[in-house]
């Protein structure tokens, strides 16, 4: 698991308008992730005693799975456009 992304950059470029950029502070979600990990032992125990096996497996694997997914977003980059217009999204 790598470090989770800290920032999300969104940049929009339009031919007849000014371009604008946005920086979203994803590091504000880090405490939420920390809280999820603090709750993880209880969720894990709950998942062990849950009557349905598949739902129990989801409970046990939810926090690690979502954490892994969130951390994996770092490095994702999408850049689409043409001469006049374009959108760039980057997870940093």
């Amino acid at each position: 698991m790598s470090i989770p992304p800290a920032l999300l950059q969104i940049r929009v470029r339009e031919s007849n308008r000014r371009r604008f950029g946005l920086w979203l502070p994803l590091f504000l979600l880090w405490p939420v992730l920390l809280l999820a990990w603090l709750l993880f032992p209880f969720l894990f125990l709950l998942g062990l005693v849950w009557p349905r096996r598949d739902q129990g497996r989801l409970l046990r694997g939810l926090v690690p799975g979502v954490s892994r997914l969130f951390c994996a977003f770092r490095g994702l980059s999408v850049d689409v456009g043409d001469r006049a217009d374009g959108v760039r999204i980057r997870f940093l």
Binding site: R68, L69, A72, L76, S77, V78, D79, V80, D82
Partner: peptide, 17 residues
Amino acid sequence: HVNIRVPLNLLRAGMKL
């Protein structure tokens, strides 16, 4: 132009989830 870069760890994490 289209330029997309997807971390392979994202594919792994998505499939596992």
